[in-house]
Design a protein around this nucleic acid. Sequence first.
DNA 1: AATCGCTGCAACCGCACTTAT
DNA 2: GATAAGTGCGGTTGCAGCGAT
Length: 285
Amino acid sequence: MGRPPCCDNGGGAGVKKGPWTPEEDIVLVSYIQQHGPGNWRSVPENTGLMRCSKSCRLRWTNYLRPGIKRGNFTPHEEGIIIHLQALLGNKWAAIASYLPQRTDNDIKNYWNTHLKKKVKRLQQQTHPADRSSFQQQTTTVDNAAAETTTSSNYYKPGSNSIDPDMQPAMAYPNTTCNAAPATMAVSTLFRSWMAKAPSPAAADYKATVAMHEFQDDRETSAAVSVISGDRSASSEMVVGRGEAGTGTTFSLLENWLLDDMAPGQAAMDGIMEFSPGCYAEPIMF
DNA sequence: AATCGCTGCAACCGCACTTAT
DNA sequence: GATAAGTGCGGTTGCAGCGAT
């Protein structure tokens, strides 16, 4: 539809751009503390900030919002990003919903500045010469992975098995096959994932706690639903997750990711292969 | 010490989607 | 149903900081 009128069309007169000052941050934070986030248009009007509403929202969501974790990404976080980027493509918001402490902008930047290069490097190490056969190979594996997820009803628009409440989340395009970069590294990870079939026994207390925390975040729940797909299918595959009355079930992918979160597990191998020598302590939610 | 090039991150831009009228 | 307003999201840019020369 129509473009927003104000600062977005070339910048209204007197609208400040560039880095935020600590004073501006204080004004914004104190306003949000009083009124809560949202209704961003009213923020500059009521605070006197010479910023556009969009800039205020961005500053809040990407920097000032409580609970944001800054600084280095752990190998586990890297792994999660790599996994999800392979599955979802550049759906940074969806990926960020799995890492509630990280912003989509942060993840996007980290992917563009670190992980993409890492994937590329590994790609070249694995198949320095034969790029075409490499492409074929990875496409095959990626398709297999996509098929696997599809077969567990990863994304089936119109499928009756998907809770209608979750339909909005399904607005994410089906990028499972198309948007995923065909990289050897990702394929390797997929192989390791498929080979190591989800193991209910691997259910880990910390992972469960982590998911309970995740559930506090509605966006996260929505994103979880994207990947969960068929809840009944996932509950067949997974026993023991989301107990304690939450009723939440988890998909293959979630278990895979959560298994990776469990310290000292072999599942880390795929990630460590991917980023040799950078292993640190697994993240503890 | 000066400069150059590179890297990483914060912020901007513009399109798309959702909601309100 | 059409339009406008509000918001979300992904791609891109600008710049500060840092290391190499």
